[in-house]
Design a protein around this nucleic acid. Sequence first.
RNA 1: GCCACCGUAGCUCAGCUGGCAGAGCAGCUGAUUUGUAAUCAGCGGGUCGUGGGUUCGAUCCCCUCCGGUGGCUCCA
Length: 591
Amino acid sequence: MMPFFMQVANSEVHITFDDKEGRDVYRHSTSHIMAHAVKELFPDAKLAIGPAIEDGFYYDFDYHRHFTPEDLIMIEERMREIIKADRPFVRKEIDREEAISYFKSREEPYKIQLIEEIKDKSVSLYQEGDFVDLCLGPHIPSTGKVKTFKLLSVAGAYWRGDERNRMLQRIYGTSFSKEEDLEAYLKKLEEIKKRDHRNIGRELGLFSINEETGAGLILWHPRGALIRKTIEDFWREEHYRWDYDLVYSPHIAKLDLWKKSGHIDFYRENMYSPMEIDNIDYELKPMNCPFHIMIYKSEIRSYRNLPIRYAELGTVYRYERSGVLHGLLRVRGFTQDDAHIFCREDQLPDEIQRVLDFTVFVLKTFGFHEYDIFLSTRPEEYVGTLENWEKATSALKMAIEKKGLSYRNDIGAGVFYGPKIDIKVKDAIGRAWQCSTIQVDFNLPERFDITYRGEDGKEHQPIMIHRALMGSLERFFGVLIEHYAGAFPLWLSPVQVRVLSITDSQMDYARKIKDELRSIGIRTEADLRNEKIGLKIREGSIEKIPYLLIIGEKEKKGNTVNVRKRGGENLGEMTLPEIIERLKKEIEEKL
RNA sequence: GCCACCGUAGCUCAGCUGGCAGAGCAGCUGAUUUGUAAUCAGCGGGUCGUGGGUUCGAUCCCCUCCGGUGGCUCCA
């Protein structure tokens, strides 16, 4: 086929791979090269779109059969040829109609659809060799500039991201300006695999999901349960300290309650079918809020009582489509570390500030020091007055700014009932996970007609804040596992200390050490098996136990223990009081 | 839910075009009494995810369902 354009682009803007714009251009160009290769190998494949993404790029194709891993290898080979040819990327502005007829001749229906939605008179095309694509650009000067790339996977994706549309095939890949950067990236993917909470969870005996029990339902094994208990204890203590009242509520409630709350109208697709009890329909709860509201409504409230803060580790059940379930991170039954704050309008800014302070305190305790914060503003469909939205949004904004945190606006992403702050924590290898959320609610106080008696003797409506610090215990636990790669800090470790005997003759002494540590609440086990010390250390290390206390004849005689920390650091001989002091301090400081 | 791939022992995985199901680790038994990441030997263990179909014969081919993985959409 003849080249469509013959001219070289006018000017070049200097960009490098080091800044995001440069990287995106580079990878976007790589995606063009991939599409070119695909069209050469599979001329009937129809082009959709192919942008740069966070760590690479993709391109969507419509093709009558699916692409196989072998196809990807062939595509990579062809791409290398295109790169080697080092052909320039050429930009050309052409008339919209002309572009449509061009893509008609090329039989590219998706491109035509895209152009039809562009209102401008002309559109830009980019050409490289005989491959022409509708594209805003910019691009790298020529194909040869791509130094290294790799195609990673192929997956289904709906045209325009709408599930009513046809499903296309998306090929994912990435490219870098240096070979070693690609290798580092692939290494990071390996690291992510190694940290996968589903594997670590099984290896360390933390939790399981059983096909016979049901998808998305978590079984907490003893060690996982111990970690959960530690988290819960911490959570309850801190909530007490931060002036919350702890409450409990049932797992089911009458369907009518959910009608009144609006969940049946707005949340039905996430709720399970009702169950009938004495001719009345009941629903498994997807949220805790209506219960807390009923507690609020159980007596007359005065402005003097506010704010009222009800907190509950509330277990909820939500229907999630089968394809989205994922280990602990996306499940069908989970426990939210939920709270609802009822306050006066004038208290709103302070309350939000307090919640944010509390959130950051809790996240820091679990080793999360960096966050991506999003302020979600009013969506198109909403309840409440514009004035209230304005007040609530600025209260949220003020709280973040006062705390000196940076954030991004997520315009129109608020819930219909109010604006919110979402916090994503960054884990040890820089990945962001959505956990905390702080939401203002104008809807439920209205629907349930909750009030307080004001200073003026009149009835007023309180404002309600929903908040979760960890989000859900399941997801948070999953994130923690990946964050620590299973090597939990001492205070969270299910087994904090293991005493290892070298031979049978230290059995009694080893037992005594274990019992003494246990008696002061340090989670301790003893490995008294008739095995070599090397094996016991190996197993203790694999189980990621923070402290191994090794006991042989020398220690027994000297009334000491030999301390080996997780990771292999040898602290040598210590007396029992010495090691206890060290352990206590480390647990206390939650390091 | 949708697209693709996958499901063999507790775990990780072999099993060529259909012909009696394998390894390593783990487990159990015995020997060994051991000094900072694997002592040696022996033994047991699978309706090959489920149900159906094709076939003389199915772990292998076809269909259904269940479960998982990577994405899409959605989300704590």
